[in-house]
Design a protein around this nucleic acid. Structure first.
Lengths: 250, 250
DNA sequence: GAGTGGTCTAGACCACACT
DNA sequence: GTGTGGTCTAGACCACTCC
């Protein structure tokens, strides 16, 4: 070895290997927006010299970031900040797929409601806020081939999404998470869902154009940005007569 | 380099890196049962000398196998063949969890039915068999704290599971997939599920002790052994009044 | 050709578990 | 202490992309 690493051993409390500390530093830059979604991050060689470690150590750090879908490698071109936009998989977090593999085309979206209000206890808890804090609530319907299939209610913390309106949502074409990235600098990175079978109430049945006794999938999702910070609560009702929720178990 | 690798370049049709070929060889040994579930595989150094490659190349091969849960690393001890038994997570493929985090204890299992019959068209297609081939069908109920919560119908190809009887199932304590491993040498490695919301028929409602109009989760699972060979079709009905299906999205 | 990520090697050393 | 997996390095070369 010739030079001492620029990274202090105390960068993380208990012991963690060097490549994890490097990963943490890269993560900080991602979170700080040093490189925007879709843009390339510096090459491995450049990062190695910046952090005074070997290329192999940087590689291992980026390996983990790539495994977590925070970054995308492209041989011969570089490593890019992952994005919900221009990602050949539209709707990265939506696991509802049509029963028949034929092309279903893009969803037709309708904003039913969009208003600012105070967080109820359960919404506040899910978002890490206090009851009564300002939140933005949106209700929308997604239809495929003219058939309303998904009814979603979603809650966003008011502060980070200041300025988001029904008009802005209606104008936007593309995944909602892509709008959040480009307009508000909020990148959804991870989510967890709780799934149940339920019956709709009258309003829900009307919006989805089904009879009251029709069983529906209830999908409650909490989406997180960097550092596991919850940034969205979404309660979806899915019709499963023409679609199904697809999951892979490793 | 001093010696030419023992692995032929033509081991796989198109190009694939050396570590992938090594991975394939280790996979073959796993499939052939050269090392049993729960047992250690040879050390990285030993595998490296066996295959005439560097330890780093073996490491990368094992890295991928570990990422796919085919193998488990334990520092200082060795690398072990993954198993559904004695795995602190009982029921690795079951994603239904109680709403309250309190201990729910082990499930009480009841075999309702177990018979050999001929595969229907859809069962045959899911298992890669021909319609009319012999299959084993099992129906069972899982109850938690006395509440019947899961009703499962499962179909197994007749040939690999020759000798499996209702008595054998009833005697067995532990995950069903652990029984398949130890008694029939069939390791379930991967699975995919299609989830819907449905209403039960009369028989199903009775077995789950719910009213006819109660919405239930329908979970259709196809479980695969090595090389993506389907070995089980399982249709589950889950009550979601006290439990929910939990999923993580990366 | 130049630059990027991807592979492979060889060697040194660390962290952990058993004996 | 010995053996295991885990980390880190340095250098060589390959595969891919763009100019």
């Amino acid at each position: 070895m010739n030079a001492s690493p620029a990274v202090a051993e105390l960068a993380t409390p208990s012991f963690s290997p060097l490549y994890r500390q490097i990963k943490g530093l890269i993560l900080q830059s991602l979170q700080a927006g040093e490189w925007k979604p879709g843009e390339p991050i510096p090459s491995e060689i450049e990062l190695a010299s910046r952090f005074r470690v070997s290329q192999g150590t940087v590689r291992k750090a980026i390996d983990e970031l790539a495994a977590e879908n925070l970054v995308v490698r492209r041989q011969g071109k570089g490593t890019f900040v992952a994005t919900h936009a221009e990602q050949h998989v539209q709707y990265r977090f939506l696991k509802l797929v049509p029963d028949d593999a034929d092309v279903d085309g893009p969803a037709e979206r309708t904003i039913v409601d969009c208003k600012r209000q105070r967080a109820s206890a359960d919404v506040a808890r899910a978002l890490g806020l206090r009851t009564g804090d300002g939140v933005l609530q949106v209700r929308r319907v997604l239809a495929y081939a003219g058939v309303p299939t998904i009814l979603e209610d979603l809650w966003l913390p008011g502060a980070p999404f200041k300025g988001l309106t029904a008009e802005r949502l209606a104008q936007w074409h593309g995944p909602m998470y892509a709008l959040f990235e480009t307009e508000f600098g909020v990148r959804m990175v991870r989510a967890e869902e709780k799934i149940r079978a339920v019956l709709p109430d009258a309003a829900q049945a009307t919006l989805l154009d089904v009879a009251m006794g029709t069983p529906l999938l209830s999908v409650e999702r909490v989406a997180h940005t960097y550092h596991d910070t919850p940034m969205e609560l979404r309660r979806g009702l899915y019709r499963t007569d023409t679609h199904h929720y697809r999951n892979e178990l490793g």
